[in-house]
């Protein structure tokens, strides 16, 4: 269906409201991009027009306004994408592929040489550790809440997990910095303050509530009829869980793990505070008790002093992060859609 026929479907009033409103709003947004001083006046003009048209034709104005709010998410995502990419262009033009595959020196501000390899390695290692923590424990927690727990236990554990999601990341970082880091240095003789291992562990605990909540939704969406069938065949509850419920909810659970991993990739403050943030690879490479930097903590620890090419390199780090997390997000959505189709309808 073309745009013209769609517009044809709307009556004359709504076309007028929508047309003038869209023009005014577009002008407002454009003015913010090129001449922010004018934005205020245009916004007032838009508001006056909307108010007037609401008095004249409530129905169509409301519809138009709701449509505008709906496009806001798409617009914001588009703006974020564009501004990240545009700001990352200089460093990509300068460094080229060295940005992604470069070797020593990785990050030298005096020589204006930038490679994101240590940061990507740091993010990779911490995310793997975090996933090893969050995935099994999170899925087990979800199974407990939706399948095993008696009523009273569920009433306690479920809100507790939700509260756990509320602890701010800087608080986890603070605990890691003041308690776990000294512990690791004192008891395990770590040479530096902070390590990938502790960071991954803390981030894993932070991603745990996400995995639990989403996986629990997935498990709860398995139709009762399927479980009852297994029960009628004489299976124990646990047999039902492992051989019917979990396989049926498998895609939903993987979506939960993907979302949790996405959270772990983007976790900033805990990594910034706990890690040493040295822009070099750990030596030897596999030393998880060593120190390096993650993509997120690179941005948080260097944005203040950065300018020129270094500033652009931070945006390149942002692009890598953004693309990775988007991949996880879209992947989990595709999986979830497949699961909904397989289980049939909105059950």
């Amino acid at each position: 269906m073309s745009v013209a026929t769609r517009l044809g479907g709307l009556d004359r009033n709504s076309r007028i409201v929508g047309g003038i409103g869209t023009v005014l709003l577009t002008l407002t947004i454009l003015s913010f991009l090129v001449a922010p001083a004018l934005t205020g006046y245009l916004a007032v003009a838009f508001a006056l027009f909307v108010a007037g048209s609401y008095v004249v034709d409530e129905e169509n104005t409301a519809r138009f306004l709701l449509f505008v709010t709906t496009t806001s998410t798409v617009l914001i995502l588009a703006f974020i994408t564009v501004y990240l990419l545009v700001n990352a262009v200089p460093v990509v033009r300068e460094m080229g592929l060295y940005l992604l595959v470069g070797s020593d020196p990785f990050w030298d501000t005096s020589a204006n040489t930038y490679s994101l390899v240590p940061m990507m390695w740091g993010t990779f290692v911490t995310t793997i550790i975090a996933a090893l923590v969050a995935a099994p424990l999170g899925v087990a927690g979800a199974v407990f809440i939706s399948e095993i727990a008696p009523g009273w236990a569920r009433e306690i554990v479920k809100p507790a997990v939700e509260m756990l999601a509320g602890i701010p990341s800087i608080v986890y970082g603070f605990i890691g910095y003041t308690l776990i880091n000294p512990f690791m240095q004192g008891e395990l003789s770590l040479p530096d303050y902070g390590s990938l291992f502790v960071t991954g562990l803390v981030i894993g605990i932070m991603a745990l509530p996400t995995v639990v909540s989403v996986a629990e939704d997935a498990i709860a969406s398995v139709p009762d009829a399927m479980k009852n069938g297994a029960g009628a065949l004489g299976a124990t509850d646990w047999q039902t869980t492992t051989s019917v419920t979990l396989p049926a909810a498998f895609s939903g659970i993987s979506a939960a793990v993907l979302l949790g991993v996405g959270r772990a990739v983007g976790e900033t403050m805990a990594a910034t505070v706990i890690l040493g943030n040295v822009t070099n690879l750990p030596d030897p490479l596999m030393d998880v008790f060593g120190n390096t930097i993650t993509l997120t903590s690179l941005i948080a620890s260097q944005y203040g002093a950065a300018s020129g090419l270094q500033f652009s390199a931070l945006f390149a780090a942002g692009v890598v992060l953004f693309v990775t997390v988007m991949g996880f997000s879209i992947g989990s959505q595709l999986i979830e859609r497949r699961m909904r189709q397989r289980l049939g309808g909105e059950q």
Binding site: I76, Y83, R263, G266, T268, T296, G318, F322, S329, I330
Partner: peptide, 22 residues
């Protein structure tokens, strides 16, 4: 809209910060 809403949900906070900065 759904994909961008979920995308915004998972966008790391530091990326929002970078966007605001730019």
């Amino acid at each position: 809209v759904e994909i961008s809403t979920n995308g915004l949900w998972s966008t790391p906070s530091i990326v929002y910060g970078l966007f605001g900065l730019a």
